[in-house]
Simulated scan of single mutants.
Amino acid sequence: MTDGAPIRILVCDDQFLVRTGYATLFAAQPGFEVAGEAGDGQAAVESAARLRPDVVVMDVRMPVLDGIEATRRMAGPGAPAPVKVLVVTTFNLDEYVYEALRAGASGFLLKDCLPAELVNGVRTVAAGDALLDPTVTRRLIGRFAGRLRPEDPARPDAETHPLAALTQREIEVLKLIAAGLSNREIADVLVISTETVKTYVSRILAKLQLRDRVQAVVLAHRVGLVTDRD
Rank of each mutant, 00 (worst) to 15 (best):
I171Q: 12
L148H: 11
P80I: 00
V191H: 10
K207H: 12
P115E: 13
L118A: 06
S193E: 09
A165Q: 15
D14M: 05
D112S: 15
A130K: 10
E170D: 07
Q215W: 02
L176P: 02
N120T: 07
I68A: 05
G41A: 06
A220R: 01
R102K: 09
R203Q: 09
P156G: 09
R61H: 15
T194R: 13
R102T: 01
L148W: 09
G224K: 01
V11G: 11
L210H: 13
A79L: 07
L148R: 13
A220F: 04
R61F: 13
R19S: 15
R169I: 08
A158H: 05
A165L: 12
P53L: 02
I141R: 11
A145L: 02
R169S: 10
R229M: 03
L131F: 13
V136I: 11
L181I: 05
L166T: 00
E37P: 09
T194H: 08
L205W: 09
K175G: 05
F16C: 04
F32K: 06
T20E: 14
V191E: 13
D230R: 01
R222P: 09
F26H: 06
L114S: 15
E95T: 10
N92M: 00
R50E: 15
D133A: 12
K198N: 11
Q209F: 13
T24E: 14
R139I: 05
R203I: 00
A179F: 07
P82L: 03
D152K: 08
R123G: 11
H161C: 08
A105R: 02
S202G: 14
L101D: 01
P156R: 02
I204T: 04
P30C: 03
L10V: 07
G67C: 10
E170V: 00
R8T: 01
Q42N: 13
F26R: 06
G224Q: 00
T194P: 07
V122F: 10
D157G: 04
D157E: 10
A27E: 08
S182A: 14
P77W: 03
V56R: 01
R149M: 14
L225S: 02
T227E: 11
D157V: 02
